[in-house]
Design a protein around this nucleic acid. Structure first.
Lengths: 257, 257
DNA sequence: TATAACATTCGTTATTGTCGAACGATGTTC
DNA sequence: GAACATCGTTCGACAATAACGAATGTTATA
């Protein structure tokens, strides 16, 4: 692929993506230093982005933040993911039943993306944000999807995985991951046993469309302290049923694998 | 303001905004014709946007659609609007109580934007989309906000309003609008009486922050056929109470105007 | 298999974006 | 309250870069 990318467009996107870091507001200086560009170059691009509503200059200090145009465009994308709309009642019911945080991850455009989050009734918060990508090798939702991708696509993705380590328990060996995925296929659910955060477990199950392809997964995240053996069975059961309900709602019939 | 905007960045944003129209997918040809640019120019920009995840080329046909990066950025913006998070339980309760569509509109970055929508239990759908701007002169939510803006800001905004007509009942006279706004201030709620769509009425009430500034509004949209006199009172009451509850939750105290 | 329609690449040119420096506004320190 | 520092903004010149039209792949269709 010949890489003939438009420089100023690249820079514009890089500027917007700086706001994916911790900070809500950034100054011209911070941006120009962050990207290693001159202030005037950055200023020209920023001015254009502000003019179009992609950035906003707050009145108080002169700093910049992300603009409402991105909210608008993001919501258009979200509204086109009709799985969220279909899943909502199922998720709501499951959330009430389990009282823990439920996540819905969609596999779209070759990425596993959190598209819906229902916070549990307990106060302990799980780090996650709708719109972010789920790591495939160390989350329940990721493994549930990965396990059921077509073999060829799956192998290719695993080949390219960076297997980043998040905790002491993160599986960073690809052979081990493949063994786990075979288990996921047998039992129709995936586990994350403190692999992304110590103290946090996850149970996830895949969602299939009318063609029998995985298009999403749903999970329940539970602090280890509340993850008794008794509850485990109930949670696995609940997640699997919810996944099946959503699969059915989008047209999956078990017969046609 | 000296207009020294970066051409290719402008064009990149214009390309993305073409997808705000009806169509989910567009071809290079459609885009280049839509913007009056050569295919190769458009192609270069698109390639860059695809590379960065702002557009996505579907495998089936070679057409393009909006990418997940926009979903991610949009959700960051959404998560920074903490009013949605605070309002959610109130909206949920109100929705159950009234059984009609509830909207939350935030006044951010100088715009009134739909940030939350709860569909009513009845099947009749209201046109609205989270992320879109609410017209200020002919929606309940718009008038509720406009009425309580500082006089100077309000006058300036009204001066610049285009007063677009949506229905036969849309108020297109600025003097008449100002009279209505005075009423809104007296009664603490705004009405939209089929001004944006025939057959649809709306009751809205403003939400204030800890400084006593309007920052949002909440509304209930009801098909005219279900808008009896009896219900009207209940709805106005419910909306006003909900607005007050949200205002209180974000720190507004009635004393400090 | 031939044709058409469209996506993609190539090569040239002038336009356009970039940079450094200067300017202006804001706020801070003594 | 004046001098200074800091940062956002504008300016002007130069060179890189993005734009275009033409050529080439690629895919679908008759």
């Amino acid at each position: 692929m010949s890489e003939k990318l438009i420089q100023s467009v690249m820079r514009a996107t890089e500027i917007m993506e700086l706001f994916l870091g911790q900070q809500k507001e950034l100054s011209v200086k911070e941006i120009s230093e962050g990207l290693g560009l001159s202030k005037s170059t950055v200023h020209g691009i920023i001015k254009t982005l502000v003019y179009k509503g992609y950035l906003y200059q707050s009145g108080e200090n002169a700093k910049y933040q992300l603009g409402m145009k991105l909210f608008e465009l993001g919501n258009v994308v979200g509204s086109q993911l009709d799985i969220t709309y279909i899943s909502r009642p199922v998720i709501k019911k499951l959330g009430e039943q389990l009282g823990e945080t439920i996540h819905l991850v969609a596999y779209v455009q070759g990425e596993a993306v959190y598209v819906e989050k229902l916070e549990g009734s307990h106060s302990l918060r799980i780090y996650s944000q709708v719109g972010k990508r789920a790591p495939l090798h160390c989350t329940g939702v990721g493994k549930a999807i990965l396990a059921f991708l077509p073999a060829e696509e799956r192998e290719e993705i695993i080949d390219q995985l960076s297997m980043e380590r998040y905790t002491i328990k993160t599986v960073v060996d690809k052979a081990e991951l493949k063994k786990q995925l075979a288990e996921v296929r047998r039992h129709l659910f995936a586990m994350d046993d403190e692999e992304i955060e110590i103290g946090l477990k996850c149970v996830a199950s895949p969602i299939f469309n009318h063609q029998g392809k995985v298009v999403a997964s749903i999970s329940c995240a539970i602090p280890t302290v509340r993850f008794s053996n008794d509850r485990q069975q109930a949670i696995i059961q609940g997640i699997k049923e919810a996944a099946e309900a959503i699969s059915a709602a989008i047209g999956y019939r078990r017969e046609n694998t």
